[in-house]
Structure formats: structure tokens, C-alpha cells
Computed example of a mutant assay.
Amino acid sequence: MTPPLFWIDSVPSVGQTAELTGVEGHHALTVTRIRVGDQVLASDGLGTVATCEVTDTSGKDRLVLRALDHTTVAAPTPRVTLVQALPKSERSELVVELATEAGVDRIVAWQSARCVTRWVGPRAEKGIAKWRMVARTAAKQSRRPCVPLVEGPAGTASVRSLVSDVVGGGGVVAVLHEDGARSLADLPLNAANEVVLIVGPEGGIDPGELEDFRALGGIPVALGPEVLRTSTAAAVALGAIGVLTDRWARGRDR
């Protein structure tokens, strides 16, 4: 079984020690019940990770870790960015959690035309902060040494610019839509340096937005015969991309 992962500011080199304290230390000792002699993974959330042995504990939030190895994990290719229209509040966190566990590299919160939810002012700051916290927690749970970037909220004009830049740079933009005439298997994913997935809100992508993305090189794609919820579509697509590209194969090699 893979050891539990905890976040640390600076990952120790082999043979060196570091302290795990604060919230992470408290979680390790009181929730996960880590003890002296146990092994844990310590990561900075940026791709560097070490397998460590716990050599000492004190109080309710302090552990001393000694690094047994030290690795910098290369980012998988192609990079995958999810442009996610803001879901209704009860499903908002689920989107980020599932996409993170499925391996997404970046999430852009999208204020699309048909979004019922509106992130404005302080609510936007609070929403992005919440998504970042969920991404960090989900990465920890799934033993990911990299926490996906979370950005936004972006308007449709910004998403149009992203589509244009990615397609112009040799990437692929898949607009997930139930009426899409193509599948992910039809797209040149392995030849792309970046893949962007665009997922609309509960009411679907506005026809005008869909045509804009198509005109800029975005490709409407159907994931299958079923119509998926906005909260699950990205995770299903990421699973398919993992199989259709080398992203998961590289993970197995590590």
C-alpha cells in the first residue's frame, strides 16, 4: 500500500531530516495516526516527493522525517487543462475533486453564458480559494506530488483567447458536447503538447459560445451515448485521455 502523503515546504534530500508540523503534522498524528517507524510521502505540491521514515514525534503536531529517497516527478504529457463552467453549488467541489484525482494539470473556472451560479467580487475570491483547497486535498488523497493550478473565474472572451492560443501552438481543444460528431479517440492527442477540455454548465454550452470555439479550432466531442453531468464529464474524459495517451503509462513506469 502506498504510504500517505503530506505537504511540506521543503522536501529533504536522501539521509536528511525535516519536520512536519502545523495542520499537516496534526493530521498525520491525530487522524492518520502515524507513529515512529512508519513511512510517509512528503511533497511540496510542485512535483518533488520523498519517501520518509518517521524517526520522532512530539505533542499533537510534530514529526521528524528522514528521507529514504528523493524524486522530482516530471509533468505528464500532453498537459491537460480543464475549462469548467461553474456548476451549481452542491456539485461545485465534486468537479474539482474528481478532476484532480483523474490527473488534471490546470483548472480554469469559467463564467459561461448559461451558468446559474455567478461568482462576482468577494464571492469569486471565496470560490477560487475553495476550489484550490479542494484540489490540494484531492491531490493529497490520491498521492499526487503536483497540485493542479486553479485559475479564474474567466469570462468567455478569455476562454476564446485560450482556445486560439492552444490551437495555434499545436494543442487540441475538445469541447465536450452531447451533439459532438467526434470522439476523443478521433483526435491527435499524442501529437498535442496540450489538451484543453471545455465543459459547459447544467444547461449546456450556449450555441453562440459553441460556434465561437468551433471557429477558433475547438472540436465538439461526445464522450459516449450517455449524457453526463457537468460534475462528472471531465473525470470521464481524463480517464479516456489517460488510456489514449502516454500519461498513465508514464505513471506506471514510476
Rank of each mutant, 00 (worst) to 15 (best):
E93V: 05
G25T: 09
P76Q: 12
L149Q: 15
R132P: 07
L223Y: 15
Q141H: 14
L68V: 01
G15T: 05
V221K: 09
V163R: 08
A234F: 04
F6H: 05
A99I: 01
R35G: 15
K130P: 00
L197H: 03
Q111S: 14
F213L: 15
R118S: 12
R143Y: 10
A85M: 02
S183C: 01
G22E: 15
V150W: 10
V36W: 09
A42C: 06
G168C: 05
V23K: 14
R252Y: 08
S231P: 00
E151Q: 07
G152M: 13
P4L: 06
A129Q: 09
A102N: 03
T21V: 13
G155Y: 09
V64F: 02
A99K: 05
I219G: 06
E90M: 01
S10D: 11
E93A: 13
G239D: 10
K126W: 06
R247A: 00
P145A: 01
E24T: 04
R118G: 11
Q84F: 03
L238A: 06
G200W: 03
P207M: 12
H26A: 03
T48Q: 04
V243M: 14
A215Q: 14
G168L: 13
A233Q: 02
A174P: 08
V80N: 07
G155F: 13
V163D: 14
V166R: 12
P4Q: 05
P225M: 03
G45R: 02
V236D: 00
D105T: 07
I219K: 09
A174E: 13
P4S: 05
V64W: 08
T51Q: 06
V150D: 10
G170N: 05
S43H: 05
T137W: 06
A42W: 07
G103A: 04
